[in-house]
Computed example of a mutant assay.
Amino acid sequence: MALVKKILPAIVALIVIAYLFIFETPSTRLFDKPSDQATQKAPAFFMTDFVSSQYDENGRLSQQLRGLRADHFQPKGKASAKDYTLVQQLKADIYNPDQAPWHIVADKGRATHRGDRIELTGNVHLFQKDPVKGVTELFTNKLIYFTKRQVAQTNAPVKIVTPQGVTTAKGLKANIKTEQFTLTKKVKGIYEPD
């Protein structure tokens, strides 16, 4: 009986080890290189409550991006031109010399082309609070912002509110640097002169 008590743990350990090697052997596919058609389902990394700042060649703050969460995806399984980042509760500030800053707020953003292009969706609000000209606001549900060129465009309905009036249209191209807005289709406006 004492011999059985001493040998029993060793027998149980051998049975468990044999079971693991026979039935639970890890698949050799774990070590295979992923195919080019493989797609990533989970983010490669994520950030929460983040701030990203960019500076111009003179060291001045040019853009600042904030968000509640950012999930970065690498569809090829490694860094490539196909990478993209999904941002929740996006807020961006755009700074240019001799100009009041522009601000962008959106429910979601999808940054592509190494951050050069951000597709904004859901309650998109682009606005500027200028101490001389007053507040200029743009509202839409979809907007594409090109960060390097500081150009925003959409084919969706837009509403622009300024101290002089309200303008609506379907489609817009806006150059943030030059503050020129071009409305493309179905433009309607109410203008109130000073």
Rank of each mutant, 00 (worst) to 15 (best):
139 F>N: 12
122 G>D: 10
150 Q>A: 00
134 G>A: 09
163 P>M: 04
109 G>Y: 13
21 F>A: 15
90 L>W: 13
149 R>K: 02
11 I>D: 08
129 K>D: 15
41 K>M: 14
144 I>Y: 10
50 F>N: 06
30 L>I: 10
113 H>L: 04
125 H>W: 11
167 T>G: 11
145 Y>Q: 09
22 I>S: 13
57 E>A: 09
10 A>P: 08
6 K>N: 12
188 K>V: 12
118 I>S: 11
92 A>S: 03
101 P>K: 10
129 K>C: 07
80 S>A: 02
86 L>T: 14
127 F>C: 12
69 R>N: 03
48 T>L: 11
144 I>H: 04
16 V>P: 08
158 V>T: 07
168 T>D: 13
84 Y>L: 13
99 Q>K: 12
166 V>T: 15
106 A>M: 09
177 K>R: 13
14 L>T: 04
19 Y>H: 02
81 A>I: 06
102 W>M: 04
125 H>Y: 12
160 I>C: 06
189 G>K: 01
121 T>Y: 01
109 G>K: 11
176 I>F: 02
192 E>Y: 15
146 F>N: 01
46 F>A: 12
104 I>N: 05
64 Q>S: 12
109 G>A: 06
29 R>Q: 14
38 A>Q: 12
75 P>K: 07
16 V>G: 05
153 Q>S: 02
149 R>Q: 00
120 L>T: 06
149 R>P: 01
55 Y>S: 02
156 A>Q: 10
85 T>A: 14
49 D>R: 01
38 A>N: 14
26 P>H: 02
11 I>E: 12
52 S>K: 10
176 I>H: 08
74 Q>R: 08
50 F>W: 13
185 K>N: 13
9 P>G: 04
151 V>F: 01
9 P>R: 11
71 D>F: 00
43 P>C: 04
143 L>D: 01
8 L>A: 07
103 H>T: 13
26 P>S: 03
180 Q>C: 00
186 K>N: 14
183 L>N: 10
74 Q>E: 13
127 F>L: 09
145 Y>W: 09
12 V>C: 07
68 L>C: 11
148 K>P: 05
91 K>I: 03
1 M>T: 15
10 A>R: 15
78 K>G: 04
73 F>W: 00
46 F>I: 01
92 A>Y: 00
1 M>I: 04
4 V>G: 09
7 I>L: 10
88 Q>G: 08
89 Q>C: 15
130 D>Q: 08
160 I>L: 05
29 R>M: 15
175 N>S: 02
55 Y>L: 07
3 L>V: 14
145 Y>R: 01
39 T>Y: 11
54 Q>D: 05
125 H>P: 14
38 A>W: 01
186 K>R: 09
68 L>G: 06
1 M>G: 14
57 E>P: 06
10 A>G: 06
68 L>R: 10
77 G>S: 07
57 E>G: 09
184 T>K: 04
8 L>T: 10
16 V>I: 05
185 K>T: 08
85 T>V: 00
178 T>W: 00
166 V>P: 03
117 R>G: 08
48 T>W: 09
124 V>H: 14
160 I>F: 05
65 L>S: 05
184 T>L: 10
15 I>W: 08
151 V>A: 05
110 R>Y: 04
11 I>A: 09
92 A>G: 01
28 T>R: 05
